[in-house]
Design a protein around this nucleic acid. Structure first.
Length: 219
DNA sequence: GCGACAG
DNA sequence: ATCTTGTCGC
């Protein structure tokens, strides 16, 4: 799909996104990440699930596939969703809420990776990015737990959140079937001793581990 | 035209 | 995202 068409599709899909409070009594939390094999044209998509709220590991699945779309800021979902869905289908039990490594509605057309994936899976999704794509916010004092609204055209689309003292903040935004406060609160309950929420950190480590084991094997 | 720009 | 060594700090 040409980038031009992708943008048109985003505008249509963004209309379908629903923001609502996340139920507090769900049982399975999912999280995903992707690791790229630079020299070769392949990537590893990992999906992990955890019991909620204990965060005890449940399932771990992954898929390896060719990279089918270039990296274009604003069009990340078209590059990562296909492989993520491949891995997702391998799960025995579907998660009730899903964490994504990227933005939700904190996106130029309000359809970041988390929002797009949420529409595909029809489950609540939350975007948690390590850096900003768009939007502005007031200065944030870097004390763990502090946060500030992320605004886009004077409308709040997420939160800039400090997960560790003196460390660069993370960007939290609802994807689909989630709202601003539900998203921030859920991420807070996933924090461990690192900047990145535990489920996403685990997914990242697992994706990197698998990519390296694949390089050692064939190529 | 220039700067910004998830992973 | 990936490519990479040492290095500063809790």
């Amino acid at each position: 799909m040409p980038p031009r068409e992708a943008v048109k599709l985003q505008r249509i899909l963004a209309e379908q996104v629903e923001l609502r409070r996340i139920a507090e009594d769900f049982a399975v939390l999912g999280a995903s990440d992707i690791s790229y094999m630079k020299p070769v044209d392949r990537l590893v998509a990992v999906v992990l699930t955890f019991h909620w709220p204990s965060l005890e590991p449940l399932e771990s699945v992954h898929a390896v596939s060719p990279i089918g779309f270039p990296y274009v800021p604003g069009l990340l979902s078209f590059r990562e969703i296909p492989p993520l869905l491949m891995a997702y289908r391998l799960l025995k039990r579907a998660p009730d809420v899903f964490l994504c490594d990227g933005q939700g509605i904190a996106h130029p057309r309000r359809l970041g990776l988390a929002s797009h994936l949420g529409l595909c899976l029809d489950i609540p999704t939350i975007g948690c990015a390590k850096s900003r794509l768009c939007g502005e916010h007031r200065p944030l004092e870097l004390r763990r737990g502090n946060y500030a609204p992320l605004l886009l055209n004077d409308v709040q689309v997420g939160y800039v959140f400090c997960s560790r003292n003196g460390v660069k903040p993370i960007y939290i935004s609802p994807g689909h079937l989630a709202d601003l406060d539900s998203s921030r609160k859920l991420i807070e309950r996933c924090l461990g001793r690192f900047r990145i929420p535990q489920p996403l950190r685990q997914a990242h480590l697992e994706a990197t581990r698998i990519r390296k084991s694949l390089f050692a094997g064939s190529g």
